[in-house]
């Protein structure tokens, strides 16, 4: 990893995030993870994607103790930087605002998270089963903690 990301961009990027009360969790060469309040996430994403030429690589969902962490990976290709915006969706809510209406590329990604982790994306035009088999029981999510293969018997 020879050259590092353009510093000025990271500064600008981090200032923007700090204004929205985001916290930088880890920062390595050319990539960083930032924790963002759930209400600020979608406007931030929209801003980065439309103004800063960012590209949504994918969304990762992780089942943690208090709920589900959603990690939005943004690639700033011009600046050799990958930023990961992290939000925590509480178990009691299990829902998140969908970004598909303005970013159609996120459609499959959100449907996959819906299938595997049970997060409901509100405003998604087609929140249907995508990658699990037809005989998979409703309400069993394979990537949640404590999932056992036996639970999924049809």
């Amino acid at each position: 990893m020879s050259d590092t990301a353009t510093p000025s961009v990271i500064e600008r990027f981090e200032t923007k995030l700090c204004d929205e009360h985001a916290i930088c969790e880890t920062r390595k060469e050319r990539q960083g993870v930032y924790s963002v309040p759930i209400a600020k996430l979608v406007p931030l994403l929209r801003d980065f994607i439309s103004n800063d030429n960012a590209r949504l690589a994918t969304i990762t969902g992780i089942d943690v103790r208090d709920g589900t962490e959603l990690l939005y990976h943004l690639c700033f290709d011009d600046h050799k930087y990958v930023a990961t915006l992290k939000v925590l969706v509480p178990r009691t809510v299990d829902a998140m605002e969908s970004i598909t209406p303005w970013l159609p590329g996120a459609e499959f990604i959100e449907r996959e998270i819906h299938d595997l982790l049970g997060i409901d994306f509100t405003g998604h035009p087609r929140m249907e089963r995508l990658i699990l088999s037809d005989d998979w029981p409703e309400g069993v999510y394979p990537l949640r903690r404590g999932f056992k293969k036996e639970d999924a018997q049809p």
């Binding site: 994918t58 992780i62 499959f108």
Partner: peptide, 26 residues
């Protein structure tokens, strides 16, 4: 695109895989 989270144990805690076709096909 891969994302890996480790807790210092032997195995990854979470390993996310995003293949190119997943965004190209839609």
């Amino acid at each position: 695109f891969h994302y890996v989270r480790s807790d210092g144990g032997r195995c990854p805690v979470r390993h996310k895989i995003r293949a190119p076709s997943y965004v190209n096909v839609p």
